[in-house]
Nucleic acid binder design. Structure first.
Lengths: 204, 204
DNA sequence: GTCTATAGGACGATAGAC
DNA sequence: GTCTATCGTCCTATAGAC
């Protein structure tokens, strides 16, 4: 933790950057990208607005940095829960069943409502064509639909594309309700009950 | 259309108000409540910011006015599609089946993506406890869950509460995907396919 | 009833000191 | 690397003319 130079900073660039991204992640989840200001981020990260801009260039740059960071972290944690390598998630015969994939996602999401809220907020906000995250969410949706469809194929479902759309939609809608009042809905339990109806009984 | 006084205005108060609410409705759907400014509304409505504030008091007041107006219009259109009176929607043995209720909603929503987008945007934005529409959406969700549950009971479903949650979640998630790319998804057609799986075959 | 004018902030971003 | 200082813009809201 000791400074290696005689500059004033007591923190390395990656550490400071991580602190900024954490602050932004929390604030976007709370207030949305538009509802959050660089000042809010700066205060929460313990530096000034100019300091934040030095690291991420612009407000839009901050959003991009946050999303890229989340992609890395979330992909890794998903792969870990599924017991496969990260690259495996892109293979075509996917060695993961649809119920297993869904359960891994729901179990993880239940532990990080803040992150789920970040995505829920940005997903709606970015519907506008001019939003800085519009392209990102377009690609993300295509990727997710593909992943679910490959898992559905592995599970031997009749109509993989449609089932993929259904499970993803159901999951998003349920999570939105869970976010509104986490005490009213037990996400994991409710998902299990709902997916049984849709997939016809529980499986490994 | 002739002015009844010698003032400058060429429009009655209700007319001007309707124009303002229309403008705000469109802009909230496009950019969210936080992403939209009173100036934007004023320009689209053809008056100044001060003019807008005269009619709705404040920016938050504008949001309330928009939501109240939508409640009126949307409840009436839903009742009409179902062939019942508006008050009937609050009765406890609800004389409407769940598939009929869902189909009426989806059919109508397919014709007004702008309004669906307004709700999708605000629903996410208002997750924050301090948002001016937070209480509104909390109550709206409770009401919707109740309506769906009563329809489920009428349809003789085993678990009305859970089925209600499932259908509402599925509908929201599907609509979000439809909003992102309306050309990729035929909302009405896709809903029919998905709900068949969930409700076990089509019914009147 | 709608305007002009303006108050009074908050915002994103830049320049330059340290 | 982070700061201070500042610019120019946008914002909501109010006061008062017409």
């Amino acid at each position: 933790m000791a400074a290696t130079t005689r500059t004033r900073s007591r923190m390395s660039v990656p550490e400071r950057r991580a602190l900024i991204l954490d602050a932004a992640t929390q604030l976007i989840g709370d207030r949305g990208f538009r509802g959050m200001s660089l000042r809010d981020v700066a205060v929460l990260a313990g530096i000034t607005e100019a300091g934040v801009l030095y690291h991420v260039g612009s407000k839009d740059g901050l959003l991009v940095a946050v999303l890229e960071h989340r992609d890395e972290v979330d992909m890794a944690s998903l792969a870990e829960r599924l017991g496969v390598d990260v690259e495996t998630l892109d293979e075509d015969p996917l060695p993961v069943t649809l119920p297993a994939l869904c359960r891994a996602l729901v179990d993880r999401n239940a532990l990080q409502p803040q992150i789920v809220r970040l995505y829920a907020t940005l997903e709606a906000e970015s519907l506008e064509a001019d939003h800085p995250a519009n392209a990102y969410f377009r690609e993300r949706e295509t990727w997710a639909l593909g992943l679910f469809a490959r898992a559905a194929t592995t599970s031997g479902v009749e109509d993989p594309a449609r089932t993929s759309l259904a499970m993803l939609s159901l999951m998003d809608g349920l999570q939105l309700r869970w976010l509104r009042d986490p005490t009213r809905i037990d996400l994991v339990h409710e998902w299990e009950a709902l997916s049984e109806v849709f997939l016809g009984g529980p499986r490994a």
